[in-house]
Simulated scan of single mutants.
Amino acid sequence: MQSGIYVALSSQMALERRLTTIADNLANVNTTGFRGTEVKFDQVLSNTQNKLNAKVAFVSQGNDYLSTDNGELQNTGNLFDFAVKGDAWFGLNTPAGLVLTRDGRFTMTDSGALVSVRGFPVVDPGGGPIQLDPAGGAPTVSSDGTVSQNGKRMGQIGLYDADVGKGFLRYENSGILPTDTPQPVVDRSNVGVAQGYLENSNVNGMREMTQLIEVNRAFDSISTLTSSSEGTLTDAIKTLGGSQ
């Protein structure tokens, strides 16, 4: 009976973890370049101390991973808006190090630096900043990320890849700090840059709301089951105590 309570508690912990990710996804359903978080749960087997040496399946707390679905591209017509085509990321130089993002809302500072909407320098494939001519107007960017002004090559927007399955931290909503060291993407025909476009969040709001309702119902059901089991255990103890 106690094993059943422990299994129910492990399920509640897993559901609470899922509720947290769903809430974060819903909060960023309109965040440019945001990729939703999913949770992978594993089954953990444990031998209970009983005559049958039965195995009881518990639920792990789960491991977060990023959804790999691409968000819808929106044509903005702004020459300082960019979207990544394919499975790659823009690179930003931040106080925390190299941050990867799909948010391509860039701008040019008075000194000519190409920066993100948060003011972080956009980096080239080598990790260096991109310097533009402040008097040269909006740049032209080709599909491979090459940046030009008035026909003159000024640099290249770097695209990066990393194995986010090894772990990551969120940074400034759309940004991530992967555990794996990001590597520049080189000579991949299925990856590129689209100028004048932005990538919307890949979170499906209706799907997340449906999952939120389902997870809440499951949490309530397990809470009711746990309370019932605890009551049964208490009654059994009282009965055994009264029979002595």
Score class of each variant (00 low, 15 high):
Ala135Leu: 14
Lys166Pro: 12
Val122Gln: 07
Gly112Cys: 02
Arg102Leu: 09
Gly104Tyr: 03
Val115His: 10
Asp187His: 08
Asp110Glu: 15
Ser116Trp: 08
Pro125Trp: 08
Leu114Ala: 00
Ser116Tyr: 05
Leu100Ile: 05
Gly165Asn: 15
Asn93Tyr: 04
Arg170Phe: 05
Gly145Thr: 08
Gly158His: 11
Pro121Asp: 09
Gly151Ser: 10
Asp124Lys: 01
Val123Ser: 03
Thr109Gly: 04
Glu172Asn: 14
Leu169Glu: 13
Ile176Leu: 06
Tyr160Phe: 15
Ile176Met: 01
Gly167Phe: 13
Pro95Tyr: 07
Ser148Pro: 05
Gly91Pro: 06
Asp187Asn: 15
Val185His: 12
Val99Asn: 05
Pro125Lys: 12
Gly126Phe: 06
Ser142Met: 01
Gly128Ala: 15
Pro129Glu: 03
Pro182Asn: 08
Pro139Trp: 07
Leu169Thr: 14
Pro184Ser: 11
Pro184Arg: 10
Arg105Trp: 04
Ser189Pro: 12
Phe168Glu: 07
Asp133Arg: 01
Arg188Asp: 11
Arg105Tyr: 01
Gly112Ile: 03
Gly175Pro: 03
Lys166Trp: 00
Gly145Asp: 08
Val122Gly: 13
Pro125Asn: 10
Arg188Thr: 06
Thr179Leu: 15
Ser143Leu: 11
Glu172Thr: 06
Ala113Gln: 15
Asp103His: 13
Ile157Phe: 07
Asp144Met: 08
Val164Arg: 10
Pro134Arg: 11
Asp124Ile: 05
Leu159Ile: 02
Ile157Met: 14
Asp103Tyr: 01
Ser142Cys: 01
Asp163Ile: 13
Pro129Trp: 03
Asn150Ala: 14
Gln149Cys: 01
Leu169Tyr: 09
Pro134Gln: 10
Gly97Ser: 05
Val147Ser: 02
Pro178Val: 10
Tyr171His: 15
Gly104Ile: 12
Asp187Leu: 07
Thr109Leu: 03
Ala138Lys: 07
Pro125Ala: 10
Phe90Asp: 09
Met108Phe: 02
Ala138Thr: 04
Thr181Leu: 15
Gln149Phe: 00
Ser116Glu: 09
Pro184Gln: 10
Arg170Lys: 15
Ser189Phe: 09
Ala162Lys: 07
Asn190Phe: 10
Gly112Val: 05
Val117Arg: 14
Phe90Val: 08
Leu159Tyr: 03
Val193Leu: 11
Phe106Gln: 02
Thr140Pro: 00
Thr140Gln: 13
Ala135Glu: 15
Thr109Tyr: 05
Val115Thr: 12
Val191Gly: 09
Arg153Gln: 13
Val193Cys: 14
Leu98Asp: 02
Gly91Ile: 01
Gly104Cys: 02
Leu100Glu: 02
Thr146Asn: 06
Leu132Pro: 03
Ser143Val: 14
Phe120His: 14
Gly145Ile: 05
Arg118Ser: 13
Ala113Lys: 13
Ile130Asp: 07
Ile176Ser: 02
Ser116His: 12
Gly91Asn: 04
Asp161Phe: 04
Gly192Pro: 07
Gly158Gln: 08
Gln156Asn: 06
Leu114Gln: 00
Thr107Pro: 00
Asn150Leu: 09
Ser189Tyr: 02
Pro125Ile: 11
Pro134Tyr: 07
Met108Asn: 06
Gly97Lys: 02
Leu132Ser: 00
Arg170His: 12
Thr107Ser: 15
Val193Glu: 07
Ser142Trp: 00
Leu177Phe: 01
Glu172Leu: 02
Ser189Gln: 14
Pro134Cys: 12
Pro182Trp: 08
Ala194Gln: 10
Thr140Leu: 04
Phe120Val: 00
Ser143Met: 14
Tyr160Met: 01
Asp180Phe: 08
